[in-house]
Design a protein around this nucleic acid. Structure first.
Lengths: 144, 144
DNA sequence: TTCATTGGTTGATATTGTCAACCAACAGCC
DNA sequence: GGCTGTTGGTTGACAATATCAACCAATGAA
């Protein structure tokens, strides 16, 4: 596969290939989850007092979609919902016992992908990449 | 929105935000197309003797999906299929007259997004970003 | 000539994304 | 206290995208 000169191609391809790799990793670990499940679990694991609203804001996804995925995670007993003392409209999300165990294995799988992704690329270069990427994100978000 | 330190987050977000922006641009230009349509049109425009196989290989998408989108593009009279003299199984894809006209407008829309994306980022940095991105892609593809 | 491979098509189904209506709780305001 | 606009979340309907497998005809190599 030749190298792409076009920033668009690079972006599309990176996201796509990365998704494919992650998906495969998840499946290799025999986890009964799809991509969205994984992403939300990660966010919930990271954020202490996580609400659906927070997830929607950070990911930019539709809140309806968020609601549905969370519901699935709940019926799978991976996350728990407790009423938010600060605001009776919302609920705080957290990983259940099972969820935490699963999360550890997900991390493993994803770390492996990340390791593959970054193989042979000096840390300095990776940092620069992330920095530039963040600036692009700022540009895109500003516009809206 | 705070800057992400995690390469995964950056990748996801970039791809997502970029997609959102492109979609909006397409719609602002009143083009009756969805994302896949646009991507395939671009590929066909770029590749002189383009076949479905070629598109599937480059994008990594399922060939069934490719077939379907092409069929739609054909019924919209945007692309033409002519038998491939080299191989009677396959067909060469090309933009129709209408397709070419549309393509010009798509380019405009997408160029605008790219411009927004890269605003204020020195060319040198963009080049480095692309280069690093390509290396990551090589890493991911090698693995499979 | 066989036979495995390749380019493409089709069907079925899962996943992800989008849009809009809706409800209850909130927050500011008079 | 009552309004009113906003916010967190839910739901329905539907479009777009992805995945998997079976299948066919042409190809190419043995």
């Amino acid at each position: 596969m030749p190298h792409q000169a076009d920033i668009r191609q690079v972006l599309w391809q990176l996201a796509f290939q990365f998704k494919v790799s992650s998906k495969r990793a998840i499946r290799d670990y025999d986890l009964p989850l799809n991509g969205m499940h994984v992403r939300l679990l990660q966010m919930i694991a990271r954020q202490p007092a996580c609400t659906a609203q927070h997830i929607a804001a950070v990911t930019g996804r539709d809140k309806g979609q968020i609601t549905r995925v969370i519901k699935e995670l709940e019926t799978m007993d991976l996350v728990t919902r407790t009423p938010n003392p600060e605001d009776r409209r919302s609920q705080l999300l957290a990983l259940s016992q099972t969820g935490q165990g699963l999360m550890a294995r997900i991390q493993e799988a994803e770390d492996e992908v990340t390791k593959t992704l970054l193989k042979g690329i000096p840390k300095k270069e990776v940092d620069a990449f992330i920095e530039t990427g963040n600036r692009m994100l700022d540009n895109l978000r500003e516009e809206s």
